[in-house]
């Protein structure tokens, strides 16, 4: 909830304040690797098609473009079995989309290790699937937050008590909301989400709920804050949102335990295995 407070934006109250788009000269830097590896798992299916995208950063006013990596693999740390490193294949050369089919049971149960070789550097990340709870009910409400053109969607779900849970809601179009159960542990909880538009009758709204861990919860919140900006007393400070990908090129078990001498060579993005439930509602 503190995140909710933090991200509310305040409109100008006196009428003479204004916002204007301006041109600014921005500094630039060598591009970095982006790893978009949010693996959504439907535990009711026996296999899961894992799809991971890689891109490179651009200047703020430039274009983000897909790239190809030298190799991308995922390994099961707990139960390696026969396939120590499962390679993900690029769907089409230059698309930046790498895919492979995995056993859902193994994905849900074990710790997985992602490795990417790119331009002579090795980037790694580790994740374990977090459980979620299904959505109990979706209802369209009639309230509005800041403007007339909005649609209120009420989401109800039941948290499991006595353990710390974090959830990520995906409303489509890059709209996410992350929540923690600190204030509603073990309760059935409902809250409203406001779409910035009004929908026509017959349109379908789809929402997914995903179980995430605390680090990914912090990551998604920061991501949203940085994307929205904000104004006035609730403006968010500028911060580079670092994911969980480590540059492991120089790390070995003999001499080098850390990257202290190489602070700027990091990859952006996140590798997370999450359990997902979806639900839809038709606008009336």
């Amino acid at each position: 909830m503190k995140r909710l407070i933090f991200t509310l934006s305040i409109f100008s109250l006196l009428g003479t304040s204004c916002q204007e788009v301006i041109t600014v000269d921005l500094p630039s830097q060598a591009p970095k690797l982006i790893v978009d590896a949010l693996v959504r798992i439907d535990t009711s299916a026996s296999t899961t098609l894992v799809s991971i995208e890689v891109r490179q950063t651009s200047d703020f006013f430039g274009e983000i473009s897909p790239i190809s990596v030298d190799q991308m693999t995922m390994s099961n740390l707990d139960n390696p079995g026969n396939n120590t490193d499962q390679v993900l294949d690029e769907t089409e050369p230059g698309s930046g989309i790498y895919q492979q089919v995995f056993s859902t049971q193994e994905l849900a149960r074990d710790r997985w290790f992602l490795q990417i070789d790119y331009q002579g550097e090795l980037y790694v990340a580790e994740s374990r699937m977090q459980y979620s709870v299904p959505i109990d009910q979706l209802t369209i409400g009639d309230g509005s937050l800041f403007s007339e053109e909005s649609t209120e969607l009420l989401i109800k779900y039941s948290d499991v008590g006595d353990r710390q849970d974090f959830y990520l809601f995906d409303y489509g179009n890059g709209d996410f909301f992350a929540s923690e159960d600190a204030f509603y542990d073990g309760q059935q909880f409902a809250f409203s989400y406001f779409y910035d538009e009004e929908f026509n009758p017959g349109e379908v709204l789809t929402v997914s709920i995903m179980g995430i861990d605390r680090d990914f919860f912090n990551y998604m919140n920061l991501l949203r804050e940085q994307n929205e900006g904000g104004f006035g007393p609730f403006a968010s400070p500028a911060v580079s949102v670092r994911g969980n990908l480590i540059n492991a090129t120089d790390i070995d078990n003999n001499n080098n335990y850390n990257n202290v001498n190489n602070p700027d060579n990091y990859a952006l993005g996140y590798f997370a295995l999450v359990q997902e439930y979806r639900d839809s509602i038709v606008v009336e």
Binding site: Q29, I34, D36, D59, N173, F176, G243, G269
Partner: peptide, 12 residues
């Protein structure tokens, strides 16, 4: 000022 941009799951 930002020195670059990235995107994740459609969030720029």
């Amino acid at each position: 000022y930002p020195i670059g941009q990235f995107d994740f799951q459609g969030v720029v």
